[in-house]
């Protein structure tokens, strides 16, 4: 890019091989300051769907502590999504996933997508799909024979999105106030 160009705002180019304007990689501790706000955005979005998902006042500290521990754990997978072009080094999305043992069912190893969030500007052009497929591949590499995902039951956008990705409901998770 020529340096003499006026500083007009630019979109991320859609020139990645997979067509999505993002690039996924394993997160490191250096990403923590960028990842925490993304997790908090997701939790606040979940709260929009259901009052039983009310975000704790200490959620930010919680996110930081949890991510810090999970970054070191072999049973966890934290992925950072970066933008492309001028946003190449900007973290624009996050995935939190875990490896769990299924005690009674087969396949025995399950990869769980706990949290997945992309900033709005980076959601289109198959970016979400790319991030999910990338995560599934990483979980498979860690031995997962089945992949599950958790999200608010009222989130119809997510329901439709994961159906398109080949997911279907297998267990239900109901709640009432105690």
């Amino acid at each position: 890019m020529k340096r003499s160009n006026p500083p007009v705002p630019q979109r991320p180019p859609e020139s990645q091989a997979h067509g999505a304007p993002i690039h996924a990689r394993l997160a490191t501790e250096a990403d923590l300051p960028a990842l925490v706000p993304l997790i908090i955005r997701l939790k606040r979005l979940n709260e929009e769907f259901d009052s039983m998902l009310k975000v704790r006042p200490d959620a930010e500290a919680q996110a930081e502590a949890v991510l810090k521990a999970e970054l070191k754990s072999p049973k966890s997978l934290i992925i950072a999504a970066e933008g492309a072009g001028p946003d190449k080094d900007k973290v624009v999305g996050v995935v939190r996933a875990a490896i769990r043992e299924r005690l009674f069912y087969m396949p025995e190893t399950e990869g769980v997508i706990l949290d997945i969030y992309l900033l709005p500007l980076y959601r289109r052009h198959g970016a979400g799909r790319y991030l999910v497929e990338h995560t599934i591949a990483q979980l498979k590499e860690r031995g997962a024979g089945i992949v599950t995902v958790e999200f608010p039951a009222q989130n119809e956008i997510a329901t439709r999105f994961y159906a398109k990705c080949g997911f279907r409901p297998i267990t239900a998770h109901h709640a009432r106030m105690a």
């Binding site: 500083p7 705002p9 955005r41 606040r44 709005p120 500007l121």
Partner: peptide, 28 residues
């Protein structure tokens, strides 16, 4: 702008405004 904290809420409740936020992104 596209990174305002209320964007997700906006996507659910006012997708017309959400689209304008994405399209203009605050004019930079």
């Amino acid at each position: 702008e596209a990174e305002r904290p209320d964007m997700d809420e906006m996507q659910l409740h006012n997708r017309w405004k959400y689209r304008v936020a994405l399209e203009t992104d605050g004019g930079g």
